[in-house]
């Protein structure tokens, strides 16, 4: 069974590295991206099971990435978890309207984030 692939798009280096480490520890294949441009390149090259995306990232925003992924039939099944420090109702609603599957507000609890990722992975880690 293939190892689930997860894309972590986060501009804060420490957050990205810590989340990456924790996900790798859980046995996932993790691809980090520090901005929207890097993320889109990775999305072209790989089929991800879950994308963890921060809304406020350089070059291409998290919501735009969500829209692109969900509107492309090839990637539409990818689960997207939007992360944002901006927990305003309209931002959350916009994220869901664009196809996000989950929303987690910053500051977040790492074990909770891990549980949410696990929930969105269709196949169990081998």
């Amino acid at each position: 069974m293939p190892i689930p692939k997860i894309l972590v798009i986060e501009d804060e280096e420490l957050v990205r590295k810590v989340v990456e480490f924790r996900l790798k520890k859980e046995g996932y294949d993790v691809y980090p991206a520090k901005d929207g441009g890097e993320a889109l390149e990775l999305i072209e090259q790989h089929q991800f099971d879950v994308i963890l995306v921060d809304i406020m990232i350089p070059y291409v925003g998290g919501l735009e990435i969500t829209q692109k992924v969900k509107s492309d039939p090839k990637t539409a099944s990818t689960q997207i978890i939007v992360v944002s420090a901006n927990g305003l109702e309209n931002v959350i609603l916009e994220a869901f309207a664009l196809g996000a599957d989950d929303f987690i507000a910053k500051p977040f609890n790492l074990p909770e984030l891990m549980m949410r990722v696990k929930k969105h992975i269709k196949q169990p880690v081998g």
Binding site: V15, V18, K106, P107, F108, N109, L110, E112
Partner: peptide, 11 residues
């Protein structure tokens, strides 16, 4: 800055 991103044990 990093403290702003986490809650729980990490924070």
């Amino acid at each position: 800055n990093y403290h702003r991103n986490f809650t729980g044990n990490s924070a």
